[in-house]
Simulated scan of single mutants.
Amino acid sequence: MGEGMFLRTIVFSIGVLSAFPLLSFCDTLSSKPLVKIGISSALTGGAATYGMDLRDAIVFANEKLGKGRYKLIIEDDKCSGREAVTIAQKFIHVEHVDWVMGYACSGAALAALPLYKKAGIPVMITAASSPKIRDAGKNVFRTFPSDQMAARKLYSRMKTQKGVMGILSEETDYCQDFKNAFLDAAKEDGIKVAVEDVLPSSSDYRSVLLRLRKKGVDLLFLNSQSEQGVINMVKQIHEMGWKVKLFAAYWPDSPVFLRSLGNMAYGIEYVVTQRLDDLLTEDGRAVYKEFLDKGYKIRSIGAVFASSFEGFRVVDEVIRNGSDPESYILGKSFNGIFGRYSFDKHGEIKGLGFVVKRLTKAKNMH
């Protein structure tokens, strides 16, 4: 090898080696960081069946629609306002999330929303249903219908039956808001309702049940934050031998409810969103089958899957279009797994409603 060839070889080798840091630097510049979405949901405690279904639907939607564009940061708010605030502070100041999704519990959502509003972070609520969320302000959206509608639907059903109405209600944000919406509807008709409130930590309802029975209640709405609360109430009513007509919201549609109560559950009427079989389009059923085929399952009610999947779809569209969330969401009609839907000026979904069902031995009857 001649001297000139030797020098050219050294120069070429140095040039190749020096190119690697430059290529690495260029790759860093061209790659975009993942968009961060914080998920706050009840993954433990009485509302965990709803919270886990919400989480699974969003994780699945991220797999199917997100295509690797997002980093999901999932936290357990335990259906607690205090926990939700702590998580919000982490999402805002540590994780620096771009969006927040989730909330199985209204109290948790209502406690955290002021922090996100101040930080300018948009929020998509996919299961919490308190009427108060409607007035949360700009950049708060919801894909699950409000309890205002559910309470009036249940009241309308109960008033068709003869007897004195009563409510046994836990003292949580969700339960009290639902109760108040029910009472507002009754007040419009001049109908008085016997009411007893209990702490959410209560497990012995016998004293308040006795008071309601003494008031002559014939039609009793059991209003609990969790399915376990309603299950305990029903069991104690049966232990008392009280032949009262029972009503509830949401929880009797859960598979856990019927398994826990057996024959005691039959005859209970309840307000709930439509079943997935009735709600989903043909394409939506295919998406749901894919969800189940991947090993996911529904522990609560099917509408939580639908509302959470569609909540992710809306967030994904907003991010991909680089649009202002408020302008984009309020000005558009979406086509999803349950057909077309839109949002009103308060960010509330239009396109999902409620039905009243009755548990029977054969099946749940509308």
Rank of each mutant, 00 (worst) to 15 (best):
V271P: 12
I268K: 05
P255H: 08
G267D: 07
V256F: 13
G267S: 11
V234W: 01
G267R: 06
N263Y: 01
Y270G: 10
K245N: 10
Q225W: 12
G241M: 09
D253V: 09
Q225H: 15
Q225N: 15
S226Y: 09
G262W: 01
V256I: 08
N263R: 05
Y266M: 07
V271I: 14
I237M: 01
E227S: 15
V256G: 10
V272M: 13
I268Y: 02
I231T: 09
V272C: 15
P252C: 06
E239F: 04
G262D: 00
Q228F: 12
M233Q: 12
I231F: 03
Q236V: 04
G267P: 11
Y270F: 15
L261A: 01
K235F: 04
G267V: 09
V230H: 02
M240S: 10
L246Q: 06
Y250P: 02
H238S: 09
L246C: 05
D253R: 15
F257V: 03
V271W: 07
G229L: 07
Y266P: 05
G229A: 11
V256M: 09
F247R: 04
K243L: 13
I268F: 04
S226H: 10
K235W: 01
S254R: 05
S260M: 05
W251I: 05
W242F: 12
I237W: 02
K245D: 05
G229H: 06
L246T: 04
W242R: 03
I231A: 03
L258P: 00
K235T: 08
N232W: 05
A249M: 13
H238I: 00
W251V: 07
V272R: 14
A248Q: 07
Y270M: 06
M240T: 02
G241W: 08
